[in-house]
C-alpha cells in the first residue's frame, strides 16, 4: 500500500512537469539558443550517415519523416516524426530534449549541439 501511494505520487508529480507548446514555439526556443537555424543543414543531418549504433535518423524514421517508421532494433512501429503528419510532435520541450539526447547518442555517438537541434527542428517544421 505504501509503495503504491509513493508510486502514484511520483507518477503524478512527473506528469505535472510536462507542458504543451506549439512546434513554432519549440523552434523559436531552439533558435534562440543556437542563434538561428537552417532547414538545409537540418535535412543534411536527417539524411546523413554517422558512426553510432544506428547509422542514420532514416534507419527508424524512414526516408520521409512524414511516414510511419519502425524501430530498427525492436521493430516497434513509430508514428511519423514531422508535425505535419503527427500533431503531437515538437509540442513538449522536455520530450524534444529527451529524444534528442537519446537519439543523437544512438546515431551520432554524441549529444547534438544547440545548432544541430535547431536545424533539425527547422527541417521537420518545413515539411508540408
Amino acid at each position: 500500500m505504501k509503495i503504491s501511494i509513493l508510486a502514484m505520487t511520483l507518477a503524478l508529480a512527473y506528469s505535472g512537469l510536462t507542458s504543451a507548446a506549439t512546434p513554432q514555439q519549440i523552434l523559436a526556443e531552439l533558435n534562440a539558443k543556437a542563434g538561428g537555424s537552417s532547414v538545409a543543414r537540418g535535412e543534411k543531418l536527417y539524411r546523413g550517415q554517422f558512426g553510432g549504433e544506428i547509422k542514420s535518423c532514416m534507419g527508424c524514421h524512414t526516408e520521409d519523416a512524414r511516414a510511419s517508421g519502425r524501430h530498427v532494433k525492436t521493430h516497434k512501429a513509430i508514428e511519423p516524426l514531422a508535425p505535419v503528419a503527427n500533431k503531437e510532435r515538437f509540442t513538449d520541450m522536455a520530450k524534444v530534449e529527451k529524444w534528442f539526447r537519446r537519439n543523437c547518442k544512438e546515431v551520432l555517438a554524441r549529444e547534438c549541439t544547440a545548432q544541430e537541434k535547431a536545424d533539425f527542428t527547422a527541417y521537420m517544421l518545413s515539411l508540408k
Binding site: 508510486a7 511520483l10 507518477a11 539526447r101 547518442k105
Partner: peptide, 15 residues
C-alpha cells in the same frame, strides 16, 4: 542504448 529519463521519473518507474 542510453535509456535514462531523469532521476525522478526513474524512481517512480522503479517503484
Amino acid at each position: 542504448e542510453d535509456a535514462t529519463f531523469g532521476a525522478e521519473a526513474e524512481k517512480a518507474v522503479s517503484a
